[in-house]
Deep mutational scan, measured.
Amino acid sequence: VTVHVNRYTYHFDNPEEAEKFAREMAKRLNMTVEIHGNTLKVE
């Protein structure tokens, strides 16, 4: 599972951890999480 935050890319083996990380980053940056299959984008 890949998480994109701005120009950074993070890889996770565990989808739940990836989503938790993405949501935490989105909250911190006041952004939203978009899910595209195995890719989560924080925008």
Rank of each mutant, 00 (worst) to 15 (best):
P15K: 14
N6M: 12
H4I: 15
T32E: 07
T2F: 12
T2D: 07
E17M: 07
K41F: 15
K41E: 05
T32A: 09
M31S: 10
R28H: 09
M31A: 14
N38Q: 07
H4T: 13
R7Y: 10
L29P: 07
N30V: 02
R7V: 08
T2Q: 08
N30P: 01
A18C: 02
E34G: 07
R7D: 13
E34H: 15
R23I: 11
L29Y: 14
I35L: 07
D13V: 09
L40Y: 12
A22Q: 01
V42H: 03
Y10N: 00
E43V: 15
R28P: 03
V3K: 01
M31F: 05
N38V: 05
A18Y: 01
N14D: 14
V42C: 07
A26N: 02
K20M: 11
H36E: 10
F21T: 00
K20S: 11
R28A: 12
E34C: 08
M31Q: 05
V5W: 07
E17Q: 09
T9C: 08
Y8F: 13
E34T: 15
F12C: 05
H36K: 11
G37R: 04
R28N: 08
G37Y: 10
E43L: 15
V33I: 09
V33L: 09
V3C: 02
R28T: 08
M25F: 05
E34A: 14
N38H: 09
E19L: 15
T39Y: 09
T32I: 15
H4Y: 09
V5S: 03
Y8D: 12
L29H: 08
E17T: 09
R28E: 11
P15Y: 15
H11L: 09
A26C: 08
R7S: 14
N14I: 07
N38P: 07
Y8V: 14
G37Q: 06
P15H: 14
F12I: 01
K20L: 12
N30L: 03
N14G: 07
F12P: 00
N30D: 07
V42Y: 03
T39R: 06
N14V: 07
Y10H: 03
Y8A: 10
M31N: 03
L29M: 06
H11E: 05
Y8G: 06
R7C: 14
T2M: 09
E24P: 00
T39G: 06
L40K: 02
E17I: 08
I35N: 06
T32L: 09
M25I: 15
N30H: 11
A22V: 04
E19V: 11
H11T: 07
K41C: 12
E17C: 07
E43M: 15
F21K: 00
I35W: 14
E17A: 11
M25Q: 08
V33P: 02
N6K: 07
T9F: 08
H4A: 06
E19P: 00
R28Q: 13
K41L: 14
V1S: 06
A26D: 02
L29I: 03
E43N: 12
V33T: 02
E16D: 12
H11Y: 14
E19N: 07
M25A: 08
L29W: 08
H36P: 01
P15Q: 13
L40I: 15
L29Q: 05
A18Q: 00
R7A: 13
N14Q: 06
E34I: 15
V42A: 03
K20E: 13
R23G: 04
Y10S: 01
T39V: 15
T39W: 07
D13I: 09
N14C: 06
L29N: 05
T39S: 10
N30C: 07
V1D: 01
A18E: 00
E43S: 14
E16T: 10
E24Q: 07
R23E: 11
A22Y: 02
L29K: 02
G37S: 04
E34P: 01
P15L: 15
N6D: 12
K41V: 15
F12A: 00
V3E: 01
T32D: 05
T32Y: 08
E43F: 15
T32G: 05
E16W: 12
I35A: 08
E24K: 08
V1R: 03
T39I: 14
K20Q: 12
K27Q: 13
F12S: 00
P15I: 15
T32W: 06
K20I: 12
A18L: 03
V33S: 02
V3I: 04
K27D: 14
N14P: 00
T9L: 10
H11Q: 07
H11I: 09
N30F: 04
I35Q: 09
F12K: 00
V1Q: 04
K27S: 12
T32F: 08
E17N: 05
K27L: 14
N30K: 04
R23M: 09
Y8K: 14
P15T: 11
A18V: 01
L40D: 03
G37H: 06
M25N: 03
E17H: 07
D13M: 09
A22E: 01
H4Q: 13
N6H: 12
E24G: 05
V1Y: 15
V5P: 02
H36Y: 13
E17R: 06
F21W: 07
N6P: 03
T9Q: 11
T9S: 09
R28L: 14
M31P: 01
H36A: 10
F12W: 01
E16G: 08
A22K: 02
R23W: 14
A26R: 03
H4M: 13
K41R: 14
Y10L: 04
G37C: 05
R23H: 13
N30I: 02
M31G: 15
P15S: 11
P15V: 14
M25P: 00
V5C: 09
K20H: 11
E16L: 11
H11G: 02
H36F: 12
Y8L: 14
A22H: 01
D13G: 06
A22C: 04
K20P: 01
N14K: 07
H36T: 09
N38A: 09
T9P: 05
N38T: 10
D13R: 06
N14F: 07
E24L: 08
R28C: 10
T2H: 10
K20D: 11
A26E: 04
N6A: 08
T39P: 03
V1F: 15
N30E: 06
M25H: 04
E43W: 13
M25K: 03
